[in-house]
Design a protein around this nucleic acid. Structure first.
Lengths: 352, 352
DNA sequence: CCGCACTATGGAAACGTTTCCAATTCAGCC
DNA sequence: GGCTGAATTGGAAACGTTTCCATAGTGCGG
């Protein structure tokens, strides 16, 4: 046992800066300067230190360095669920950019639980992460955001309206869902639709709110009976139960077009249509919000609102890096565009 | 400027263990014991320390603690791409379990690039992460795995065959793809199919290899012309170009059934079938490997091989925690089952 | 009443860096 | 040749913990 432990320790223990200093015949201070600053270090020392470090396979200990420099080279990413394709792509892109800059990313899922959000913010802070990317589950977790601000580490918000501290808003990457929804709605109205349903999981968060606003705006500007704008909220976002969609499509004056969010809700709507024998796009036009595999591959292929998740992640990382480097203020917000990808799922409504 | 900096510092600086000690009128050592061990500490001290810590909002600094204890409370997770739904769910589940245990998870994408894999292993090691979950892009990045072992931190492999160091294999979570493929193939053979195509992106990694083995095994045990087992590999996994599938289905003696991996390849196959006017399941039976949204929602709904990604993540986290706690050896491997979910996409082949 | 075992406590060392400061060298210039 | 200033270097402090060690108290049996 003791031998075992010893051997383990032997294997694990690595060369420290002290070992390098001894091997190179200089002081630890010089080694540190040689390896980091490069400033005020003679050619001889630089060479010897480099050689010694190489020979010993020296790798600096980030923990120790962090303690001194107050920076960890890690940033946190707080989302409700990385398994959600929406977030997964954002996380992926952000990680790519951050890695380029030599930073590691730690992720945590909050499942939209305010308590957990606070706990993770505290954990990040306690670990002294250099910064954070967060997509709050609700815009109203005030306590968490105050704590977050108190930490002093830069924060970038992902597509949410979080009330800033005092006057200045948080740096954020926003997606122009409003304009997207407006475009889609306008497109359907242009095709002749007058009763359109917007299927979305609640207006609690920015994307939903903005979409609803854009949806309404399109009706308003077309000067059309606003009664035709059917907004179907849904409490739980897990499944826009096929049943809900069925109910909607069985109505007396059913909508002739549907704008459906994401994969699950879209799937529910498509199934409901199939079950009722409604053919897309003949009897029902469909637009997907978010360009998922399902939308692209379904037959008929579904017209979709698309925005680049990669851009969101990349922009967020960029904004955060800017703050971390403290290079001026730069821009503090990014607003990303939403495009309408035309496919086969929309047409003029048949007279009813 | 200097005032600004000062104020920042003031805000950021937090209570240290020293402050707590002073406030409680005890030594730092006692505070540490009171807050951590709880052993050898009098009731009075415990009370005073707790009160002082509470009043000052003391939160221990993980960096400093890490330096002393050689543990960071963080584990790394190395996958090719977190945006891949396959990995996303695994990561999500693993993170959940690890968070329960008070650990943070840092993720890194390797894009199957061996150099990057090595770099990230080094980065993890340099940061002294307590352990790692890795799904190598190739089983043959020997140098990376040797380095990985040298780090001394426990590692759990995700569904890969990585040659162990010396005799003992790495702890791993494996999915029984072989049995799954065998079941699916046997099912098709039972329906009367004699020419079946397996569409998979290469045999470079364990899942592909195992599936091929299971596929062949089913043919062998059914005592059927093995010429009917069509294995279609594909170099780039991004798109099993619809074209490839088209070519396959146009053949003289085309397969009457297809087993297709994932979302993209499955989509390519379905499109090709549609383009050729082949109806599923009448003219062509289809089984999806991996139960994706597309498979579940498509009409007809696609029969699929399903295994629980959540279980993979959870099991991996569990295995890692076991190692971290050093509680005996416990089990070192988990083999997770694959189920065949029967839907509407398979039938008896029409006589050709 | 004295030692004795045991518990609680304070002080200090240690973890591996970076960075400050003082000391030394060195070149250049009068 | 001595003086000045810049460049380089070594030594040590500091970062915030945990843990070891020695010491002081405390109860208890002889």
């Amino acid at each position: 046992m003791s031998i075992m432990t010893l051997r383990m320790a032997e294997i694990v223990s690595r060369a420290t800066i002290r070992d390098v200093a001894r091997a190179a015949g200089v002081s630890v201070g010089s080694v540190s300067r040689a390896l980091n600053g490069g400033k005020n270090v003679s050619a001889r020392v630089a060479r010897d230190v480099a050689a010694a470090a190489e020979k010993l396979g020296y790798q600096p200990d980030f923990q120790a360095r962090s303690l001194r420099t107050r920076t960890t080279g890690m940033v946190g990413c707080l989302v409700s669920d990385v398994a959600n394709p929406l977030y997964a792509s954002i996380v992926q892109a952000a990680e790519a950019r951050l890695r380029e800059a030599g930073l590691l990313m730690v992720v945590a899922n909050t499942a939209n639980d305010p308590a957990r959000e606070r706990a993770m913010v505290a954990a990040f802070r306690s670990r002294r992460l250099d910064g954070m990317l967060v997509a709050p589950g609700s815009d109203e977790n005030d306590r968490a955001w105050r704590e977050l601000a108190a930490g002093g580490a830069p924060v970038v918000i992902l597509d949410r309206d979080v009330p800033g501290e005092g006057d200045t808003p948080w740096p954020a990457v926003l997606v122009d869902h409003r304009e997207g929804a407006r475009t889609a709605t306008r497109y359907l109205i242009g095709l002749g639709h007058r009763r359109i349903a917007l299927l979305t999981p609640g207006a609690r968060m920015r994307p939903g709110r903005e979409r609803i606003a854009g949806f309404k705006a399109a009706f308003a500007e077309a000067d059309i009976d606003p009664e035709g704008a059917l907004i179907c909220l849904q409490a739980s976002s897990m499944d826009f139960a096929q049943g809900d969609a069925l109910e909607l499509l069985r109505r007396d004056r059913r909508p002739t077009a549907i704008i459906a969010l994401g994969t699950r809700i879209l799937a529910g709507a498509l199934r409901a249509a199939r079950d009722l024998g409604l053919s897309v796009p003949r009897d029902l036009s469909v637009i997907a919000v978010g360009d998922t595999d399902l939308a692209a591959v379904h037959s008929p292929a579904i017209t979709a609102l698309r925005w680049s998740l990669e851009d969101v992640g990349r922009a967020a990382a960029e904004l955060l890096l800017q703050r971390l480097r403290g290079t001026g203020e730069g821009q503090s917000c990014a607003l990303l565009p939403v495009d309408l990808v035309l496919r086969e799922s929309c047409g003029a409504p048949t007279a009813t």
